[in-house]
Design a protein around this nucleic acid. Structure first.
Length: 265
DNA sequence: ATGCCTGCGGTTCGCAGA
């Protein structure tokens, strides 16, 4: 079973590019982030025509997550538990059964958190990011009690280690690389979860995001912030993982590229 | 030190992204 995650930065602008990639990569399940549209405006038909079931948790203009699956959805849960006042569409979870067993898959879009000291309605953007990640940790802790395969896939907006950024010093004070954010990611992994790409690859400087500005892509000034995080039962079934950076060079690309895993499921 | 580029909403500029 192939499971991918991709922050596509606007589904309406990326429908053709996503279709092209699906035809090439042929994933069974795809977690999408930053669809930037309401549920009713998600262009489901082109993906249903390719054999995918579609689940969407969106909002107007910003954020928004979705899951495409060749297998039917047994269950779909919208929103990350832990704060009823949080109206940002950043989390969608589904239980999906293949012929070899069930897997729980979440498509998540963690808050960016910049600027670190900016005021906002509930404190600062950085405080919202850290609170959101604490909720994710608490939710993962609950899921672990089921002792089943699950995959928390998406744009974490966290650079885990210095080897995951072209210039660590330039990102030192950024919300994506601040110790508090990295610590939150480590706390999540310390529950017993695995970063799938890092489990399969020892080399550094493999990136999932390159800014549109300042020639970041041709200069390979990237960061690794899109992750598939596995429960022990999913990690036991991990065959391989990789980043497909080719779509960053396509016409009208997203600034992120797909990351994918193969599970023996 | 700042903008660089892009998508979106809703009109041609402001906001957010990372």
């Amino acid at each position: 079973m192939l499971i991918a995650t991709w922050n596509i930065n606007g589904i309406k602008a990326r429908t053709e590019g996503l279709k092209t990639w699906l035809a090439k990569a042929r994933p069974d399940i795809v977690c999408l982030q930053e669809i930037k549209c309401q549920d009713k405006h998600f262009p489901a038909a082109p993906f249903e025509d390719l054999g995918y079931n579609v689940a969407v948790h969106g909002q107007k203009s910003f954020n928004g997550v979705a899951i495409l699956s060749k297998y039917p959805f047994d269950e779909v849960i919208k929103g990350l538990p832990g704060d009823d006042g949080d109206i940002e569409a950043r989390y969608l979870e589904a239980v999906i059964s293949s012929k070899h067993g069930a897997v729980r898959v979440a498509s998540l879009y963690a808050p960016n958190g910049n600027p670190v000291d900016s005021p906002s309605a509930d404190g600062t953007k950085f405080a919202y990011k850290l609170a959101w990640l604490a909720r994710l940790e608490e939710h993962a802790r609950g899921l672990l009690t089921f002792e089943e395969p699950f995959v928390l896939a998406g744009d974490y907006n966290i650079i885990p280690e210095p080897e995951d950024v072209h210039d660590p010093e330039a990102w030192r004070e950024d919300a994506l690389f601040r110790p508090e954010a990295r610590r939150a990611y480590r706390r999540l992994l310390n529950l017993g979860l695995w970063d799938a790409f890092r489990a399969a690859h020892t080399e550094g400087h493999r990136y999932t995001f390159w800014d549109y500005q300042a020639g970041a892509w041709p200069k390979d000034h990237g960061i690794r912030i899109d992750h598939l995080v596995l429960s022990p039962q999913a990690a036991d079934r991990l065959v391989t993982a990789d980043i497909d950076k080719a779509p960053r060079g396509w016409e009208r690309p997203s600034d992120h590229v797909p990351v994918w895993i193969e599970l023996a499921l």
